[in-house]
Amino acid sequence: MSDTVSFGYEDVTPTEKTARVRGVFSNVASRYDLMNDAMSGGMHRLWKDRFVRRVKPRGHEQILDMAGGTGDIAFRLAESGAAVTVADINPEMLEVGIGRAQQRGIDGLVWTEANAETLTFPDRFFDAYTIAFGIRNVTDIPKALHEAHRVLRRGGRFFCLEFSTNVWPGFADVYDAYSHHLVPKLGKLLANDEDSYRYLIESIRRFPDMPTFERMIADAGFVQTKVEPIMGGLVAIHSGWKI
């Protein structure tokens, strides 16, 4: 790992990034749904539905939902009867998720504070690993991908939903202008937090493009890797298998 990593458009030490990302999500935890609506125009709900359909959870499975603190993906996965563990590095995000689960009467989820780079779960424990809109905030992404591979059983599957690089001519420029100029202002208006929203947009721009991230997944040991662009790569579903 290099001496510096990206925090939005800044280059900072790995320790500083971890601390600053934790601060961002502590700030936005109570308004996380609002943040996602602002960043995606509400489309994130449809993307998450599509994502979980690709995972195809089954009732007998153990699934780890990493960076899933507020429960959006876990609630959908749990509808299958799968045993879902929700892990997040940020306790405030987990508190929001636990509260939402109680409000919805959803029982049986396991909630745990965990760092994607240093999981404490045993080898070959889970049937599936999901992470939605979280991987770009990880300090050492290759290390997190290797950890995902480690905790999956043979035949286990990895699924990642993340903002990516749009390749539609014209649309990319429109979205770039919207995200850089409007989203931080919405953050200030709706959550009184312009800086956190600005970081989240900048982190998308610094995230590897689809082919590069697919290679990173393969380098972690996954096979049959696949990328499914949505809206020209505005977001993408990445997947791979452990054999």
Rank of each mutant, 00 (worst) to 15 (best):
M1W: 02
S2D: 12
V5W: 01
S6G: 01
S6Q: 07
V12R: 01
K17P: 00
T18S: 15
R20L: 01
R20V: 00
R22D: 14
G23W: 00
G23C: 05
V24E: 04
N27E: 14
V28W: 02
A29V: 07
R31L: 02
Y32Q: 10
D33N: 13
L34P: 01
S40A: 10
R45G: 03
W47C: 08
K48F: 04
F51E: 08
V55E: 02
G59C: 04
G59E: 09
H60F: 13
I63K: 10
I63R: 12
G69K: 11
G71W: 05
F75T: 05
R76K: 14
R76C: 01
A78K: 15
A78I: 00
E79P: 00
S80T: 09
A82E: 07
A83Y: 07
A83Q: 15
A83V: 00
V84W: 11
T85E: 03
T85N: 05
A87Q: 11
D88V: 07
P91H: 13
M93S: 10
E95K: 15
G97S: 10
I98M: 15
G99P: 05
R100A: 12
I106Q: 05
G108Y: 06
G108M: 06
L109W: 06
L109G: 04
W111M: 04
W111N: 06
T112S: 14
E113W: 05
N115M: 02
F125H: 13
D127S: 12
D127I: 10
I131E: 09
F133I: 11
G134Q: 09
R136L: 00
V138W: 05
D140S: 12
D140H: 14
I141T: 14
I141C: 04
P142G: 05
A144F: 03
H149S: 06
H149W: 15
H149M: 11
L152K: 02
R154P: 07
G155P: 00
G155F: 02
F158T: 05
F159N: 01
L161F: 08
E162M: 05
F163S: 08
S164N: 14
T165H: 15
T165N: 13
V167F: 07
W168K: 15
G170F: 06
G170V: 06
F171N: 01
D173K: 13
S179Q: 13
L182K: 02
K185F: 00
K185V: 13
L186R: 10
L186E: 09
L189Q: 08
L189N: 03
N192Q: 12
E194A: 15
D195E: 15
D195L: 13
Y197F: 15
Y197K: 08
Y199T: 05
I204K: 02
I204H: 00
R206S: 10
P208H: 06
D209E: 14
T212L: 08
F213M: 06
F213G: 03
I217G: 12
G221H: 05
G221L: 09
G221V: 04
K226R: 15
V227R: 14
V227A: 15
I237L: 12
H238P: 09
G240R: 06
G240M: 01
W241I: 14
